[in-house]
């Protein structure tokens, strides 16, 4: 365990050393390609004056909302489409048509519809997670072993029981995996959305710092985005380990 953690940190150390070497010998100025120490100093400034915290919270706020909305609409819709073949036949082509349209392509429309502020960004994040979640849930429901539905019929499950004691637990392992993938996408999209539609968030921090020619701040923004992405992924991995999701690891 400890050794594994050491191995993980080796890659980061190599990256930092390479970065330092490049910054020192590339001949670029500190303003174009800042070295690690400058970036750390910049980070300290951003933390001290509160900018970093403010922008991080703004980004996380949008991701949380967009992601929750995607869960609240996407998973029930996925269950419905997974169970009702007629609906699936009607809706699936539409979903597959909308899915490959990048959420970023929606930026102009969403700004027009929702104005400036949190809402267009939340809408974009919702779009980015909604389709993958719906599709994965649908597939998970359709892949449930038909034997389980016969067991449910045999033991007189009500509609409610069929949903909450059969379908939901049966799809938990797949849905958790889908959540893990889509939260990463959501995090990718929030940064892009903030570069255009709003005046806060880590994406805005990067854009604003570029305009001020503060490449150290730009890199600070990137580093924080990476760290939070890593934390979100770890959080989702933890979620996959909780009791009710665990049976999927070996069974099936």
């Amino acid at each position: 365990m400890k050794l594994a953690r050491l191995h993980t940190s080796v890659s980061f150390m190599v990256l930092i050393v390479l970065w330092e070497i490049l910054a020192r010998f590339s001949g670029w100025s500190r303003y174009v390609f800042p070295d690690p120490l400058t970036v750390v100093a910049g980070m300290a400034e951003l933390i001290k004056n509160g900018t970093l915290l403010k922008h991080t919270i703004a980004s996380l706020y949008r991701v949380t909302w967009g992601f929750y909305l995607a869960i609240v609409f996407g998973i029930p819709l996925g269950i419905l489409l997974g169970r009702v073949t007629v609906l699936h036949r009607m809706a699936n082509p539409l979903i597959q048509f909308l899915r490959p349209i990048s959420p970023l392509a929606w930026i102009p429309l969403s700004m027009l519809w929702f104005g400036i502020g949190d809402r267009p960004a939340i809408f974009l994040i919702f779009l980015s997670s909604f389709f993958p979640l719906t599709v994965s849930t649908t597939i998970a429901v359709r892949n449930i072993n038909p034997t389980y539905f016969q067991v449910a019929a045999n033991f007189n499950f009500s509609k409610f029981e069929t949903i909450f004691r059969l379908i939901v637990p049966a799809i938990v392992p797949e849905v958790v995996t889908a959540l893990r993938i889509s939260v990463t996408i959501a995090w990718l999209v929030v940064v892009a959305a903030e570069m255009i539609a709003v005046q806060s968030g880590l994406g805005y921090l990067i854009l604003d710092s570029r305009n001020a020619l503060r490449m150290d701040y730009v890199m600070d923004g990137m580093i924080i985005i990476g760290i939070i992405g890593l934390l979100l992924d770890t959080l989702m991995k933890r979620l996959a380990k909780i009791e009710s999701a665990r049976w999927g690891a070996q069974a099936r």
């Binding site: 016969q150 067991v151 045999n154 059969l166 049966a170 999927g248």
Partner: peptide, 11 residues
């Protein structure tokens, strides 16, 4: 009905 392969609900 006792199923050919397990009909136990795995969760």
């Amino acid at each position: 009905f006792v199923f050919q392969y397990s009909g136990l609900l795995p969760w």
